[in-house]
Design a protein around this nucleic acid. Structure first.
Length: 418
RNA sequence: GUGGGCGUAGCUCAAAGGCAGAGCAUCGGACUGUGGCUCCGACUGUUGCGGGUUCAAGUCCCGUCGCUCACCCCA
């Protein structure tokens, strides 16, 4: 249809009935996070551009060409947040949250913005629930996070998911590995795809993530970072594996799993599905032990992950059982009955039941039809006869049976019903 | 930024150069105070937009915009 204004490319209206799925999923995730001791932080959507430059890394694609950056009226460069971790770390330091006992656990929920070409499972404005825990470097926390991640997805009812983990080392061992990797590829550069040739200089770890057949083949002989870790990282990773094996979590070690942002260290993980097309990660995260210090704090290890809400909703959409809430529709006949119907509706709403009255004068038949299409369980019938007798009629649209009595009786009936 | 596919009624889609259609949805009636089922009726169009070819274009050609999937990158 020809409308005057359209939503922007990559931006989305979330409307009924989908919004009900969102509410359900949000509730499940947030409840579970709280059970694990996580507390919400509400963070600004706009931050100083510099926060992301320093946090995510200047050389990354996100910072280079995917941020919504603009100048405000005072000429300051601001950016719509492309991710949440940088803001969370800023808030952690700015509000001195490190004074609480470690680990300090937080989550946040809201839209993120990246200027990318949209595709399945990817929008320019997309919603993430981010989870961060500060102050503990031990792999027990990594393990707990993985348990929690799986337990969240289980609670939502998702299955056929794969948990992949890897360690991408630290400042002590990663440079050595990158050198080794570049040594390996140096005389094979002409066999790599154009993208990988670019990656060789810019982000060599990403060569391991390439899908071009030639590059995949070359990868088989390439060194794996897991075998080049320093003592600390190696021990950390081995301990993590032991924990999650003992816990009984199914997972795969993926040597080619890397991270897009500069701040990640040691543990990297991703939970993927094979049902979403190319954008297959529903949850991803990892450890970032240097970021707090880099932002001016004391040496504080940290780990976190983010859940892609659109992807979760996509996965669950055709499976979730959206049971209708108990809903009452009040039919009334004649002008003098409308206000009376409104008062009865208010009375019913006090019991946290959805109640609405008909608007516009139309036949009782049409009113009941309207109620039926709305999915109402009961209609109340309120005409001049009922008004005179100070009674109401109510009809159960599921069974078709009809009763007459005082409002109290109906309300009592409803409470038993629920 | 690059490449593929698709744009016809509110929605899903027909019409293979010759009168723009169907189903669903919506609204109303059959039934004046009783839903669903059935039947009947009403409604909706600059065929995304602009140009070209043709006696004739939804259909062919060019351009453009939009949507979508994939690459890049990433949740």
């Amino acid at each position: 249809m020809l409308v005057k204004y359209n939503r922007l490319k990559g931006f989305c209206d979330i409307i009924p009935p989908d919004i009900h799925i969102w509410h359900t999923v949000e509730q499940i995730i947030i409840d579970k996070l709280k059970q694990y001791g996580y507390e919400e932080m509400r963070l600004p959507i706009v931050e100083s551009t510099d926060l992301f430059y320093r946090g995510i890394g200047e050389g990354t694609d996100i910072v280079e060409k995917e941020m919504y950056t603009f100048n405000d009226r005072a000429g300051r460069s601001l950016t719509l947040r492309p991710e949440g971790t940088a803001s969370a770390v800023r808030a952690y330091l700015e509000n001195q949250l490190f004074n609480r006992p470690a680990p300090q656990r937080f989550f946040y929920y809201g839209p993120m913005f990246r200027y990318e070409r949209p595709q399945k499972g990817r929008l320019r404005q997309f919603y993430q629930i981010g989870v961060e825990a500060f102050g503990i470097g031990a792999s027990s926390l990594d393990a707990e996070m993985l348990f929690m991640a799986r337990s969240i997805l289980d609670a939502i009812g998702l299955d056929s998911l794969t948990t992949e983990i890897n360690s991408i080392g630290c400042s002590a061992c990663r440079p050595n590995f990158i050198k080794l990797l570049k040594d390996y590829y140096r005389d094979k550069l002409d066999k790599l795809c154009a993208d990988c040739k670019r990656r060789y200089d810019k982000n060599p770890l990403r060569i391991l993530d390439c899908k071009v057949p030639n590059c995949v083949e070359l990868k088989n002989e390439a060194p794996a970072i897991r075998h080049c870790l320093c003592q600390d990282c190696k021990g950390h990773f081995e301990m993590l594996i032991r924990y999650i094996e003992e816990y009984g979590l199914s997972f795969q070690i993926n040597d080619r799993l890397v991270r897009g942002f500069d701040y990640y260290t040691k543990t990297a993980f991703e939970i993927t599905t094979d049902k979403l097309g190319a954008q297959n990660a529903v949850l991803a995260g990892g450890r970032y032990d240097y970021l707090v210090e880099q932002f001016g704090g004391t040496n504080t290890p940290a780990i976190g992950f983010a859940i892609g809400m659109e992807r979760i909703v996509d996965l669950i959409k055709d499976r979730i059982n959206m049971s209708n809430p108990l809903r009452i529709f009040i039919c009334h006949l004649g002008d003098e009955t409308f206000i009376h119907a409104q008062k009865i509706a208010d009375e019913i709403r006090r019991y946290n039941i959805v109640a609405e009255t008909n608007h516009g004068s139309t036949s009782l038949k049409n009113q009941i039809r309207r109620a039926d299409r709305l999915g109402a369980r009961y209609v109340l019938i309120l005409g001049s006869d009922e008004l005179k007798a100070n009674k109401i009629k109510w009809k159960d649209l599921q069974t078709g049976s009809q009763y007459e009595g005082a409002l109290d009786e109906f309300v009592r009936h409803l409470c038993i019903e629920r």
